[in-house]
């Protein structure tokens, strides 16, 4: 935090004069004045005043890469929980890349089951119909290794840290790969189970202690100590 920057929490109904805010319904106008609609942080710097919402849920946006949990299927699609108000839909034609020249098997639902996680991109979402997913891209598709944990989407910035600092601490400490999806799901791939458990516990620690200062340092120490205890 620099000396000329001022940060404070605002709550619904309070007036703000911000120059930068993320897309969404977070700022609205009432009788010609800007007000906030969710609890958030105003970061006032000489060059700009920005607003960061800090309570809330994941609202799908076209183009987002998310991690979804398959919960059921219909005649030609899977229903996918994406940790948001709307359930997403993945078509069997997309999954098997029919448009890209793939072929549809006779038993499509034996290739992706209820309880499977997928990494997918949101193709369309207009709030009228459910979000449509695609897995037709590199790095997308069924998650076959490692583990996935779910956190509150509002905690995602804390897990990434300022300029990615917390994520870097996790990576260096455990040697694991982390993919943090905007919808609050994190895919973790580690060299072994013990390291994976340490990685999961470290993220749970960040989520539950996100209100404390000096957390990055403590997470680093926690990982070091756990590795010593477990001899990995």
């Amino acid at each position: 935090m620099t000396s000329e920057s001022k940060r404070y929490v605002v709550v619904p109904g309070e007036k703000v004069s911000v120059t930068k805010a993320p897309e969404g319904p977070y700022i609205y106008e009432f009788q010609g004045e800007k007000r906030v609609s969710v609890v958030g942080l105003v970061d006032s710097k000489p060059e700009e005043t920005s607003f960061i919402p800090i309570k809330g849920f994941y609202v799908p946006r076209e183009g987002d890469v998310i991690i979804g949990l398959v919960t059921s299927h219909g005649a030609s699609n899977w229903f996918v929980d994406i940790n948001s108000p709307y359930q997403a839909v993945l078509s069997i034609y997309d999954f098997f890349g029919v448009r890209q020249g793939g072929t549809l098997p006779d038993d499509p639902f034996n290739y992706l089951h209820v309880g499977d996680f997928i990494k997918a991109r949101i193709v369309t979402f207009d709030r009228i119909r459910n979000p449509i997913l695609t897995v037709q891209d590199k790095e997308l598709g069924r998650i076959v290794n490692g583990t996935v944990i779910t956190v509150k989407p509002a905690k995602v910035p804390r897990i990434i840290g300022r300029k990615g600092s917390m994520l870097e601490t996790l990576r260096q400490g455990t040697g694991c790969d982390f993919f943090v999806a905007v919808n609050g799901r994190i895919h973790i791939v580690c060299a072994n189970e013990a390291l994976q458990e340490i990685a999961v516990m470290a993220i749970e620690m960040i989520e539950s202690q996100s209100h404390t200062t000096g957390l990055t340092e403590r997470v680093k120490r926690f990982i070091e100590e756990e590795r010593k205890v477990r001899g990995v």
Partner: peptide, 8 residues
């Protein structure tokens, strides 16, 4: 629905 990776 509990994910398969969680069960594992």
């Amino acid at each position: 629905v509990v994910s398969k990776v969680k069960l594992e």
